[in-house]
């Protein structure tokens, strides 16, 4: 094996600390003038790729990829400041939730990118915190017919096989698969670094390819239609009951018993 060619797809999402608000037309979440940053799970992916290289695993190249509005370039720069070697940006014109790619569209697009870049390892976040679909990695594995290990909490590369530990209910599960493969990352995999100032400057000089969907073969159009977006109903305060009998009768009243 000559070395890992890692592809790390990253997504620009509303910052995790911001409370999302539904727009007035109830068609999407308000994105104008809202702070955006890299999907936290994708930060873990970049970090893991960079750590593999730091652990002297033969890593030939780390490519960060993002499909999104022009501003998505910011997070590609962040990815490169964290250690990715170059970036690919597929510009998507999103307007009010229209024109956005669905997980299947993204997976199809990634398949093309993987083929073109001759990647043999794709590390994705297990989900993006905006749509929470959690589908892209799995769909990509199916399209490529590659092995997949989802929700990784530890990744070890030994020769051409990869050992992935994942947290499951009541314990951990260890998977081993041969390259090429798909890994999706979970929270406890690592602690992403902060982009240091010298690395931010270096990232400026790293190449960033700008493309559009037309540069890729395939149908990436959306198949789903968003009917309505609403905020979850506000939580109602509970009530206090006098005694156990009171509780039982209340539970019966609510149909819980």
């Amino acid at each position: 094996m000559s070395g890992l060619r890692i592809l790390v797809p990253v997504k620009r999402v509303i910052d995790y600390a911001v409370k999302p608000r539904v727009n007035r037309a109830q068609t999407a979440v308000e994105t104008a003038n809202v702070k955006h940053s890299m999907n936290p799970f994708d930060e873990l992916s970049i970090e893991e790729a960079v750590r593999l290289r730091e652990r002297k695993v033969p890593v030939e190249e780390i490519v960060a990829f993002s499909a999104g509005p022009p501003k998505a370039q910011d997070i590609l720069r962040t990815a490169m400041a964290m250690g990715a070697d170059r970036g690919i940006h597929v510009q998507i014109d999103e307007k009010e939730g229209k024109g956005e790619l669905e997980p299947l569209g993204v997976a199809k697009l990634l398949k093309r990118v993987v083929e073109k870049e001759k990647s043999n390892l794709v590390i994705l976040g297990k989900q993006s915190i905006d749509d929470d679909a959690g589908q892209t990695g799995q769909m990509l594995a199916a399209l490529l017919n590659w092995s997949q290990a989802t929700q990784a909490s530890k990744v070890q590369v030994e020769g051409d096989s990869v050992i992935v530990t994942r947290e499951v209910d009541g314990g951990v599960e260890t998977l081993k698969a041969k390259l090429p493969m798909i890994i999706t990352t979970d929270l406890r995999l690592n602690e992403p670094r902060y982009a240091s100032l010298p690395n931010i400057m270096k990232a400026k000089k790293k190449p960033l390819d700008k493309k559009t969907l037309k540069d890729f073969e395939g149908d990436f159009s959306a198949r789903l239609k968003t009917v309505k977006v609403t905020e979850p109903p506000p939580r109602k305060g509970g009530i206090k009951v006098e005694d156990v009998d009171g509780m039982i009768s209340k539970l019966k009243e609510l149909g819980a018993l």
């Binding site: 940053s37 720069r77 982009a195 240091s196 100032l197 931010i200 400026k204």
Partner: peptide
């Protein structure tokens, strides 16, 4: 500038955490 904005974000995060 883009670099200044990226840097501000990175420093802010570092300071907060």
């Amino acid at each position: 500038s883009d670099t200044e904005a990226l840097m501000a974000e990175s420093v802010s995060k570092f300071a907060q955490d």
